[in-house]
Design a protein around this nucleic acid. Structure first.
Lengths: 350, 350
DNA sequence: GTGAAAGCGCTAACAC
DNA sequence: GTGTTAGCGCTTTCAC
C-alpha cells in the first residue's frame, strides 16, 4: 500500500509526456513520435515507450496537442432546440460522421433564443476549428456580425442570401409543392396552413411556396410545438378547411389530437399533413402523411462540406437536398362539401 | 498583396493577444488583465486595449487559455443514441445548465455499441475537465478500465455496483412497482413485459422489480425501438396477457400499432404501459399511460454533481431521482372485470 | 499599475 | 534514429 501512482493516472498531478520520457529514458520528442505512429523510431525504444506509457496511464492532453498543432480537431454545432426531434437526428449524423474523421463535436442549444444563439456562436467559435449553424434563428445582420470570417462555417437548413457561409439546405418549397399537388389530386380546395415561427427560414420557404401556388390558403400563425398545433387546429376547422398543412410533425400531432377531441374525423372530414417525418409520425393514429426531410443526410453532408473547408478546399459549397412526400393515413379524398357541422368554440391560449 | 490583417480576423493568420498588445502599446499581460476583467488596470489603458481588441476582432483562443489555466471549461457527455427521445432531453438540460456556468459540452453518440462507447470515453477524456456517462452500455469491467481515476465523472441513469463514480439515477424499480399496483387495481392478473436490451441497467432494474412482485409475468425479450415493440406485441397477445408493460415508450408505440392491426382494442381488451414519457406519448392514440422519468432533472442534476467534483467538493455524490406514473388512456379495467363492458374503441373511421 | 519572464503539455524543425 | 530547441497563445507570479 505504498504510493502507487503507477498503474493508471494517480489522483494527484496528471501524467505528462515528460514523465513517460523520463521513465523510458528517452526524450519527449521520441515519446511523441512513438505515440503518433511515426515509423522512424527504433523498435526497441518504441516498445519501451509504449509499455511505460500504459503503465503510467499516460494520455496525451488534446488541449496541448491542439495548441501545438494549431488545430483542436473539434467542431461546434449550434441548434435551436435539441428537444425537437428534428435536431437530434441531424446532430447524431453529424457527430458520427465527424467522429469517423477524428473530430469531436461541441453541441450548444440556444433554446430558440436568438440572443442566446449569438452568444453561443461567439463562445463556441473560440474553441473549435469549424462551426455548423443548424437552423440559426438570429437575424441575418446579427449573424453576419458574429460569424467569424476565417473560421470554416456551414449554415445548415437555412438559406441566407447573399450567402454568408457554405450551406446545406433542403428545398422546402418543393416539399410544399408536392403536398399541394397531393392534396389537389384528392380534391381539396380549401386549405389551411399552420405556420411555424417567423424566425424560421423553413417556414418562410414553405409559406412562400404555398402563397405562390395557392394564394387563397388560410394561414394561421402557430409555432413549432404540439401544444401550439393543438391550439390552432380549431381555427383551421372553423375556417372550413378540408386539409390542414402543418409546419412540422409536432404541430401536426397537436392538430390531430385537437381534431379528435372536436369529433372531426381524419382523414374522412379533414386531411392533415406535416413536415419532417419524425419517427413517431408512423405511430400516431391515423399515421401521418408528411414531407420527409433527409435529416441524417443533412448532418452528414454538413460535416462533409465543413471538412472540405477545413482541408482548405476553399470554395464555399452550397448543397441543396430534396425532401420526399410520404403518404400515410392522415390524408384522403376531400369531403364533398366544405365545412363541417361541429361547433368549434373554445380555443386554448398561447 | 500586402498584409492587411487589420479589421476583423483576416483570411490569414489569426489575431493573437500579442497583436492587440502591440497595437495598444502595452504588454500582453495587460491585455490579458483587461480582457479578464481585472480592475487593477489604468482605466485609460483598459479603454484603449478594449478598443483595439474589438477593432482587430480579437477573440482569445480557448485552447490556449485552457492550457495556461489547466482547465478547458469543457465537459463531455457520452450517450448511446441521440435519436432516442430520452437522451436529447437529458443532454439539453445538461448543456444548458453547464452553459450557465460557462462550460461547453462535447457530445458523443456511441450508437448503442459498447465497443464504440469505450473508445469514445477514452477519446473524449483527453479533451475535457469532466465526463458524464449517460446510460453507458459497456460492461462494468470495461468501464472500470477506461474511466480515468482523477477525471471528475458522473454516471447517469445507470447503477454501477460497487460505485465507480458519482451517480445520478432514477429508481426504475419504484416506477415498475407503481405500474404493477396500477394494473392490479384495474384487475389485471396476466401481465407481459416487453423487455429492453440486456445491456440496459434500467431494464435490469425494471425486470428485477417485476419478477420480485409478479414472478409469473411473461417476459418477452424485445429491445428499445418501436419496430421491436411492433414485433413482440403479438407474442404478448398470444400469451393471453391483458396488460403489456413496455421497456419504453418507443416500444409501447410499436405495440400499440401492432395491436391495432391485430384488431385488439386498447385498453378495452389489452392495456399498455410505457416508460419515459416522451412528448409523443401524449399524442398517440390512445394516449399512453407511462412512467415519467425526470429527464431534464437528470441532466441538470448530473451537471450539478459534476460541477461539485470539478470544484473539488470531493465526495462522490449518489443522487437518486423518483419517477412518477402518468395515467392516460392506454390502461383500463382488465377484460372480464365487472364495470367495463364499454368498448372504448372510438377510432375514427379510417 | 505594469512589464518581463516562466511556464501549461505538446509538436516539429533542425541539428547531431 | 534521437535529442535539442523553439515555439503554439495564453496566464500568472514576481519584480519594478
Amino acid at each position: 500500500m505504498s504510493a502507487k501512482r503507477d498503474s493508471s493516472g494517480a489522483g494527484g498531478r496528471r501524467v505528462t509526456i515528460a514523465d513517460v520520457a523520463r521513465k523510458a529514458g528517452v526524450s519527449r520528442a521520441t515519446v511523441s513520435r512513438v505515440l503518433n505512429g511515426q515509423d522512424t523510431v527504433d523498435p526497441v525504444l518504441a516498445g519501451r515507450v509504449r509499455q511505460v506509457s500504459r503503465r503510467l496511464g499516460y494520455h496525451p492532453s488534446a488541449i496541448a496537442q491542439g495548441l501545438a498543432r494549431g488545430a483542436s480537431h473539434t467542431i461546434g454545432v449550434v441548434v435551436p432546440d435539441l428537444a425537437n426531434p428534428f435536431f437530434p437526428e441531424v446532430v447524431k449524423a453529424l457527430t458520427v460522421a465527424a467522429g469517423k474523421d477524428g473530430f469531436s463535436v461541441v453541441v450548444a442549444d440556444s433554446d430558440e433564443d436568438p440572443e442566446a444563439e449569438l452568444r453561443l456562436i461567439q463562445d463556441v467559435s473560440r474553441r473549435v476549428d469549424g462551426l455548423v449553424l443548424c437552423s440559426p434563428r438570429a437575424g441575418i445582420a446579427d449573424l453576419r456580425r458574429v460569424v467569424r470570417k476565417g473560421l470554416p462555417t456551414v449554415c445548415t437548413n437555412r438559406m441566407v442570401d447573399p450567402p454568408l457561409t457554405a450551406s446545406v439546405t433542403i428545398d422546402s418549397g418543393r416539399g410544399m409543392q408536392a403536398v399541394i399537388r397531393h392534396l389537389a389530386e384528392l380534391g381539396h380546395r380549401r386549405i389551411a396552413y399552420l405556420a411555424g415561427p417567423p424566425s424560421s427560414s423553413s417556414n418562410a420557404d414553405r409559406l412562400g411556396a404555398l402563397e405562390r401556388s395557392l394564394p387563397d390558403a388560410v394561414v394561421i400563425p402557430t409555432g413549432s410545438k404540439s401544444q401550439e398545433g393543438y391550439a390552432s387546429a380549431a381555427a383551421a376547422a372553423e375556417a372550413g378547411a378540408t386539409a390542414v398543412i402543418c409546419f412540422n410533425d409536432l404541430v401536426a400531432f397537436g392538430a390531430l389530437a385537437r381534431l379528435r377531441t372536436l369529433g372531426v374525423a381524419v382523414p374522412a372530414e379533414v386531411s392533415v399533413v406535416g413536415f419532417d417525418d419524425i419517427p413517431a409520425a408512423d405511430f400516431v393514429h391515423p399515421t401521418l402523411t408528411t414531407v420527409r426531410l433527409p435529416k441524417a443526410e443533412l448532418g452528414r453532408t454538413s460535416w462533409e462540406v465543413l471538412r472540405d473547408q477545413l482541408g482548405g478546399h476553399g470554395a464555399s459549397a452550397s448543397v441543396r437536398l430534396e425532401p420526399t412526400l410520404v403518404v400515410r393515413e392522415s390524408t384522403g379524398k376531400a369531403a364533398g362539401v366544405a365545412g363541417n357541422a361541429v361547433a368549434v368554440g373554445e380555443r386554448a391560449g398561447s
